[in-house]
Structure formats: structure tokens, C-alpha cells
Design a protein around this nucleic acid. Structure first.
Length: 462
RNA sequence: GGCGCGGUAGCAAAGUGGUUAUGCAGCUGACUGCAACUCAGUCUACGCCGGUUCGAUUCCGACCCGCGCCUCCA
């Protein structure tokens, strides 16, 4: 039985999709005005693992992740660069897709863009006005009337009175209530704008997600996810907009990933302490980054550090050593009883709110069984790769992983030649020469393993 | 101030009312010419103080510390 922690209720709940066997999931994606950072990577990878597991369990998952390509930050950045904003967004959308592919994040079923849904957005705003949940102001903006929506604050556990009391929101003459938020922004001069019944303008930040999600998945759908800082106000406002507009429950299960920290402080744009995915990938194998992200539970905060990445590297080395060393067997009679046990343990872990650290522990136990050697080894190797695939890891050739990361110190050809030299020295029992070669290679970051089948090598994490 | 989360062995990170988490690091053996890989064994824990209990790291209460959201941010 799959249990998922629901941010809305604050408890783990049995997951029951609206339509048996099908899952509709919407995740808030990027605002494309800069490169993705590790925080984005965490959300991407978390929901990628979730999608992979749900599919592996037989669900037909419709995974929608939007792209926000209209926003003040986008316009500002495009202005600074002196380029059309669409050029800027195209560039960063491409960069995002590159980053995702590197991290083995499977593409969502659909990636709707705000600019492609202006009509839906306008319709929803109009509906909200018609129902009395929104009002156009004289400045060309349209605001949401939060006092009118009874459940306002139910996701983030806050009430309007308290927020008003501690409000850090500027009083705006155009708003009935300082907490009211904008659905449609009247255009300033020179800005990209779309026509609307309230004058030229563009969507507010939250309305696009309400419009796109309900458009793609229906008025009510199964799972809505996103980063930790979207719970308020973004997701709270989405609920207010969608439920007021449709009169139906918006989302059954809300899922929020944990924060990525640096030096125990949240990694964020505003603090400027963020690492982009591509920066990190210059130093680490993408799979190492992915492993780092799934080595903690998706809801807990993780701390980004060189040490964390190094540990992830070492953990993967263990798996790939296992895969490399596993002797292919001629006996094609896999013993499957032990596989069933590992599979059950893996699924039990994943069924408990996608507990990837526990699932990885199962894989390590499985790896030990393989390393021990036995008649069921071939089947166990297959299982290790199969379960790894559900987590999006262990799909490389072991040699590709272990021998990758060429820093330009020494080429594979040079290494191979030195291994031959050393082999000759060893057959002459010239241990001094053999050790000299090995020490030389260690200096270059290359470790030799003398196995039964001969000597293999791997590049060591620095 | 409001709401919420967390403090587990050297590091990272799960979990449980009583029995080995797991990975890396350490130690001891095996394997090896020596190593590495690997295997076997092993040492380091559950912030502090009370309470409930036959028994609590796990439940309850207080306290200390750290963090997040409340403002654009994944």
C-alpha cells in the first residue's frame, strides 16, 4: 500500500487516485530567466523518482510540469541584456532540458507554457470576477479578493487575521485588502502585453498554474508538487483561484520537496548562495549529483557540500565495483526466491512516502549478496540494475562510470600501456618496478585492481 | 510575534516501545607478492531534564539549540 505525505493534511495518507490505475500530477516548474540551480535539481529528481516508481507500480502517470515564461524577472533580465524576452526564455528552456537529461530526469508528459495559455488564464480571471472572487482596479490590475474565499490559508496553516497583523505587505491603494494578490497585471509601457477586457497586460504569478493544471488534468487531480518555498503564497493562492473558479476541490495530495542548503542556510536566489547544475556538473559525474539528491528523503533538508558529493561518489563506486566484478554465469537458471525478498523490501521502502534512503540500503544489501557470490548472482545483478533504474541510477556501463572523469592528467591509452608494463614486471617478479608504476598511477588519480581476470583500473574521486 | 520542521555514532542518513539500518571513515582477520576490489568480524548513537512503561532513541511534557515559511525564490 502506497502512502504519501500530504502537505495539506500534514499526515501520511494511503494514495488513492481519482481514477483507478491513473495518476494526474502537476509540478511547478521553472521561471526561465536563469540557469537551474541545485534546488531546482532536487525538485526535478524527486518528482522524477516518484513518477518512475508510480509507473513501475503500474500506474498510468500523466506528469505535467509547467514553464513560466512570463514574469517581471524575465522582462527585467531581457531588458538588461537588450534582447527579446522570448530569446531569453528559449535559451534557458534549452539549458534546463540539457541539465535534466544530464541528471537522467525523464521528460514530463507535457510542459505547458504560460504564454500558450493566455486564453485559459483570461477565462479563469473572468470567471473569478463573475463569481465575485476578483475585481478589476483602476490601475489596470485585477486582484483576487481573499476575504471571499473561506479556505484561504488551509495549506500553509495560517489565517488572514494573523497575516494582516504581521503584514510586511505594502499597503496598496488599489487593493481592498493588502493581502489581495494580483491575477492580471496591467502593462507598463514597453512591456510585452496581451489584450484583455481590463486592458493590455499579463498574467499574475499564480494564475498560470491554476489555469494550466486544471486545463491539462481537470478541475480536480491527484498530486500537485513543488519546491518548499512555493507552499505560501503560490500554492495557497492556486487553491484559492482554482477552487473559487471551479467550485470543486483542486488537489487531493500536495507534495513539497525539502530545501537544499549551503552552509546550513537555504540556497536561494535572493541570498545569492546558489550553485547551478552546470557548475556542479563540471566537477562531478551527473549520476553522483543525482545520487546525492536521493540519498536523503525528498522532504528533508539537505546540505550541499563537497563532502556530501564525495560520499555520493564513493557510494556509487561501490555499486559499480559490484556490477563490474559480478561474474557472468553460464548457468541460466536464476534463483529467484532471494530476489522476491529484496524486491519486497525495496517496495516497502518506496511505498512509505518514497523512502529512497531506505531503498538504497536495500540495494546495498543486495550488492553485498552479489559480491558474496552464489548461484543466484546473475538474477541478482539484473535485479540490482532494475531497482536502480526505478531510482534513475546504475544504468551506465561500470567501466564508463569508474573510468570516467578524465581530468586530462593521463589518458586511458597511457594507463593501459602502464598496466602492460607492470604486468611484465610482475611476471619477472620485479615488485619494485610494479609498485613504482602503481604509485605513479595513484598520483594521477588512477587505482589499479588486480582481479582474477587481470588488472582493471578506475579513476579515483579527488 | 504567528505557523511549521529538525537535533541519531567521526561524517552522511533511515528507522524502531525490547532484536545488525545502510554508505563512507576506523579497527581485526581472510584474499593479494604488496595493495586495491571483495568477504567475515568489530568499535563509536539516538540534544537535555522529567513522566508513562517491566522496558524509551522511539510515546507524553518542559527546556536548550538549529532551520524553514510568513516578501521574489524550487
Amino acid at each position: 500500500m502506497l502512502q504519501i505525505y500530504n502537505s495539506l493534511t500534514g499526515a501520511k495518507e494511503e494514495f488513492k487516485p481519482l481514477i483507478e490505475g491513473k495518476v494526474g500530477m502537476y509540478v511547478c516548474g521553472m521561471t526561465v530567466y536563469d540557469y537551474c540551480h541545485i534546488g531546482h535539481a532536487r525538485v526535478m529528481v524527486a518528482f522524477d523518482v516518484i513518477t518512475r516508481y508510480l509507473r513501475q507500480q503500474g500506474y498510468d502517470v500523466n506528469y505535467i510540469r509547467n514553464i513560466t515564461d512570463v514574469d517581471d524577472k524575465i522582462f527585467n533580465r531581457a531588458n538588461e541584456n537588450g534582447e527579446p524576452y522570448t530569446e531569453l526564455t528559449d535559451r534557458f528552456i534549452n539549458a534546463m532540458h540539457e541539465d535534466e537529461r544530464a541528471l537522467s530526469v525523464l521528460p514530463p508528459n507535457s510542459e505547458p507554457r504560460a504564454t500558450e495559455h493566455i486564453d485559459n488564464i483570461l477565462n479563469m480571471v473572468q470567471t473569478l470576477i463573475d463569481k465575485g472572487f476578483a475585481y478589476p482596479a483602476s490601475n489596470g490590475d485585477v486582484y483576487y479578493r481573499i476575504d471571499k474565499f473561506e479556505g484561504y490559508g488551509k495549506l500553509s496553516n495560517r489565517n488572514i487575521e494573523e497575516m494582516r497583523a504581521g503584514a510586511r505587505v505594502e499597503v496598496d491603494e488599489n487593493k481592498e485588502n493588502p493581502m489581495d494578490f494580483v491575477l492580471w497585471k496591467g502593462a507598463k509601457t514597453g512591456e510585452a502585453a496581451w489584450d484583455s477586457p481590463w486592458g493590455p497586460g499579463r498574467p499574475g504569478w499564480h494564475i498560470e498554474c491554476s489555469a494550466m493544471s486544471t486545463c491539462c488534468l481537470g478541475n480536480t487531480f491527484d498530486i500537485h508538487g513543488g519546491g518548499p518555498d512555493l507552499k505560501f503564497p503560490h500554492h495557497e493562492n492556486e487553491i484559492a483561484q482554482s477552487e473559487a473558479a471551479t467550485g470543486e476541490k483542486y488537489v487531493n495530495t500536495w507534495m513539497h520537496a525539502g530545501a537544499v542548503r549551503v552552509d546550513n542556510e537555504k540556497m536561494s536566489k535572493s541570498l545569492g548562495n546558489f550553485f547551478t547544475i552546470r557548475e556542479v556538473l563540471e566537477k562531478y559525474n551527473p549520476e553522483v549529483v543525482r545520487y546525492f539528491l536521493i540519498s536523503s528523503h525528498y522532504r528533508s533538508a539537505i546540505n550541499y557540500s563537497e563532502e556530501s558529493l564525495k560520499q555520493a561518489q564513493q557510494a556509487l563506486e561501490r555499486f559499480y565495483n559490484t556490477l563490474r566484478n559480478a561474474q557472468p554465469s553460464n548457468e541460466s537458471v536464476p534463483v529467484v526466491e532471494s530476489n522476491t525478498e529484496f524486491r519486497i523490501r525495496f517496495e516497502t521502502a518506496m511505498n512509505d512516502d518514497f523512502n529512497t534512503p531506505e531503498a538504497l540500503a536495500v540495494l546495498f544489501d543486495l550488492a553485498r549478496e552479489i559480491n558474496r557470490g552464489g548461484t543466484s548472482t546473475p538474477a541478482q545483478v539484473e535485479l540490482l540494475k532494475e531497482l536502480g533504474e526505478t531510482l534513475g541510477i546504475l544504468q551506465q556501463e561500470p567501466e564508463a562510470f569508474l573510468q570516467g572523469g578524465d581530468t586530462g592528467e593521463i589518458s586511458a591509452e597511457q594507463i593501459e600501456q602502464l598496466i602492460i608494463d607492470r604486468k611484465n614486471a610482475r611476471s619477472d617478479k620485479d615488485w619494485a618496478r610494479a609498485d613504482e608504476i602503481r604509485d605513479l598511477l595513484i598520483e594521477k588519480g588512477v587505482v589499479l585492481d588486480d582481479g582474477r581476470e587481470g588488472t582493471t583500473w578506475r579513476r579515483q574521486s579527488s
